[in-house]
Design a protein around this nucleic acid. Structure first.
Lengths: 338, 338
DNA sequence: TAAGAGTACGAAAACGATTAAGCAATAACA
DNA sequence: TGTTATTGCTTAATCGTTTTCGTACTCTTA
């Protein structure tokens, strides 16, 4: 392995000189710098991150916690979009990304321990089980942490604006003339679900809509079966809704299938809307009305904030960054005369 | 920071003893080991990966090259499935995963240099531009490398069996009675495309089918527009095919839309088949006939082989591992009487 | 009892980098 | 000419581990 020492010997200087020359310090002559650089190049020298990290306590490495619960792992379109944005931005800013896990080198260790072990300079929690005490330990630890779609008092958070998202969606649907709007919401206790549901109630109240109890239903994210079942029930109501909002674009497919089977047409007979703005949502005919969450942007914002917290700890605040969703009207919500 | 030294002082022994005690070496008494471990625990000690890597030349870290060209990055369902399998298996075996990139700490460096810098012990190339000289440098370097769906003479490769996949698919379609089978294939120069196309020809030859030139068309992976265009042309032929095979499940959606618009029904009027076995393919009605590529398995096999190459370099061969695809019949290929 | 074996530990070097402090030579200035 | 600055480099310590070798002690055994 070619190290500073190798170069130093070749150049007839000390390793200190070589180090400074390569780091472009001012107390080395231009002549020496040139000589050192040339031999470094010639020998194919590259610094050793471990040695540097040991000495400087800087690893230029950030840990990413990605424990997706729905069992889809990295194939989860939204989260992997976030991860991608994070990756690209972090790389641009000169950081590497390593996944945090819990059984490095076959020993069990907590997330936090793993981070200390690897000298991560910061942590991005893309998805995790927030009821896990290990996750809590991580968030309460002394490393800068940024969370996605989750608020914790001492961590910077980047969140998709679910409140505004549902509001735009409902208002758009209302604008199309719909008054009987049903909402099949996702079923968990996350901020995401709470925000969306609250926003749905607030917006419909604001619009003066009286939404019957049976129009509000609970299914699961990314699950077509439950969405299908609920859709059937909704359509069998005495006074069925004219438009159904689903937990997300994927679960909407379940409802869509039921609708097609019943011989109904979208949007002529029944309107539907999703959430997420997945790729597939715009490939289907008719294209779905949905709220596009800008996952890439969420990821890159997260990376920016985190790295800023790492590099300028004194001037960085714990922030709540909210990324607006964009309404994609599609063609799945028809117009109704009132 | 609590280090070996801290523990050593607390216990009144040398750092050497502490190190050995924690690593369970045999020349330390049980009594001392117990004492050391207890204080280590009490002080919240955790080893420092950088120091250890520096000394032992082992990082327990593998680099992953993931440069997806279609612009979908980590959201590419197949590749992210592979990555997930890789991640899970590597973690199980005690390794961390870090993305390889090219501009760490704002300097430009090649993939290979990045790997040396980070002391990666091995490299998994999930997707990359294989015409990039940097990728070649990496594959020809002295680190163990495993490639996915790409063969390079001195790297272990894990590939989806596209030959067998297309063969099963064509034979299934033939078995349903189809004789006029069109194939819209992906357009690139990869092994994947070549294998599939060759297998299509071989299988149809074997079955004694005479496939007209105009039944073979070129579109793009994951692109609905081109698939839609080609579908239209195929359906307008004097003697249109009874079944169309698409590059993948996603591009099939484009064809499916055209078919629906024309008032045709799948599979009554025209049959279609995809490739990949994406989640969405089994959510649509009718479910698609497709070949499921076991991305997770491909990823975990890759991790296993790579780590084996790292840990037992002498007994590990450069292998070609082929993972079979599974036919999912779905309901999109109808039966035809002959 | 003396030699040899075994046990339990310590001293010190090493991994590859960074950096504070020091020092010699030259330049600048009164 | 003597004093002070500046320049350009070296020395040596340090980061937290691991590991080789040495040593002191105890225990066997002939």
């Amino acid at each position: 392995m070619v190290s500073l020492k190798t170069i130093a010997e070749k150049c007839g200087v000390s390793t200190a000189t070589v180090s400074k020359a390569l780091n472009d310090q001012k107390d080395i002559s231009e002549e020496t710098k040139r000589r050192v650089r040339k031999t470094a190049e010639a020998l194919g020298y590259f610094p050793n991150a471990a040695a540097r990290a040991l000495k400087t306590n800087r690893s230029y490495n950030i840990g990413v916690l990605f424990e997706e619960e729905a069992g889809r792992g990295l194939t989860h379109e939204y989260f992997s979009g976030v991860l991608n944005g994070l990756k690209v931005e972090a790389e641009k800013l000169g950081y590497d990304i390593t996944f945090i896990n819990t059984c490095l080198e076959k020993r069990k260790m907590s997330y936090y321990e793993h981070c200390r072990y690897r000298n991560f300079e910061g942590v991005a929690i893309v998805c995790a089980d927030y009821s896990d005490p290990d996750v809590l330990e991580l968030m309460n630890g002394d490393l800068p942490v940024v969370t996605i779609d989750y608020i914790h008092h001492n961590c910077t958070a980047v969140c998709s604006n679910n409140i505004q998202g549902i509001e735009s969606l409902v208002k758009y649907i209302y604008g199309q003339g719909h008054r009987k709007i049903a909402y099949i919401h996702g079923q968990d206790s996350s901020y995401v679900t709470k925000d969306r549901l609250a926003s749905f109630y607030r917006t419909t109240d604001e619009l003066g809509l009286k939404i019957p109890e049976e129009y509000i239903r609970s299914a699961e994210y990314l699950e077509t079966k439950e969405a299908a079942r609920q859709t059937k029930e909704l359509l069998n109501l005495e006074e069925p809704p004219t438009c159904i909002i689903y937990p997300d674009d994927t679960s909407l497919i379940g409802g869509r299938n039921v609708i097609t089977e019943l011989g109904l047409k979208i949007p002529e007979d029944i309107s539907v809307a999703g959430y997420d703005g997945t790729r597939i949502s715009q490939l289907l005919h008719p294209k779905l009305a949905t709220i596009k969450q800008d996952a890439e942007l969420i990821g890159s914002e997260a990376a920016k904030r985190l790295i800023s917290a790492i590099e300028k700890p004194r001037t960085t605040l714990v922030e709540r960054v909210v990324i607006e969703g964009t309404l994609i009207p599609g063609q799945s919500v028809g117009t109704i005369e009132n």
